[in-house]
Computed example of a mutant assay.
Amino acid sequence: MRVLVPFGARDPKTRLGAVLDEQERHSFAEAMLADVLRALADHDPVVLADAPVDVDAPVTVDERPLTEAVNAELASGVPTAVMMADLPLVGRETVERLIAPDADVVMAPGLGGGTNALVVRDETFRVDYHGASVRDHRRAARAEGLSLATVDSFQLAADIDEPDDLVEVLLHGDGAAATWLRAHGGRVATTDGRAQFTWGDTEE
């Protein structure tokens, strides 16, 4: 099965701009991508990027928006897994859980209604990553009469988009993204019994 990892190399992770400058956003996004590629190492992943990027994997550059770029790849009819590049908690066992169901479409929902990973085995299915895409993808699969499976996984649900998401990387990650955050002063603080991300010299 072909495995694609879409990656916004041109201007990554803009919603992290409150805590990371532009250079840091690029560096941290590439660290998360490295973690995803490590988890997918047994499946020869291809990075589908909107600009050239230097990574340890083949890269296909497609400057079109995410939905259009992925649909162009799906149009080939080749069974394809699509995993987003901002899932630094994903491990190899979770990847196997994603591809295991014998369904036309397999989805891994994100916590905010997105679709963080997909397996597409039917050439009629197309993605639409706008809005609550997990809901739209369910509807699209059912409209085509396709079999559908959902993989319930914290590792796949925890995409890192907002500053508040960074604490999950420190609490649960052990790869390049967690290492990057700690090296740049990222720490876990507890406030009112909840863990939060902060910058500092010591971890509470």
Rank of each mutant, 00 (worst) to 15 (best):
P6N: 07
R10Q: 11
G17H: 02
A18V: 02
A18W: 00
L20N: 00
Q23Y: 00
L33Q: 06
A39C: 05
L40A: 09
D42N: 10
H43L: 15
D44H: 14
D44V: 07
P45L: 04
V46G: 03
V46C: 05
V53M: 08
V61D: 10
V61S: 12
D62K: 03
D62A: 13
E63L: 03
R64F: 03
P65C: 08
L66W: 08
L66Q: 06
E68A: 15
A69K: 04
V70E: 06
N71P: 09
A75S: 14
G77Q: 08
A81E: 01
M84K: 00
L87W: 02
L87Y: 06
L98N: 02
D102R: 14
M107I: 15
A108K: 03
G110F: 03
G113N: 10
T115V: 13
V119H: 05
V120G: 05
T124P: 00
T124I: 04
R126M: 12
R138K: 12
A140G: 07
A141K: 04
A143C: 03
A143V: 04
G145I: 11
V151I: 14
F154R: 14
L156K: 05
D159C: 15
E162A: 09
V167H: 12
A178S: 15
A178W: 01
T179C: 00
G185R: 10
G185K: 13
G185V: 12
G193W: 03
A195T: 10
G200W: 09
D201C: 06
E204K: 01
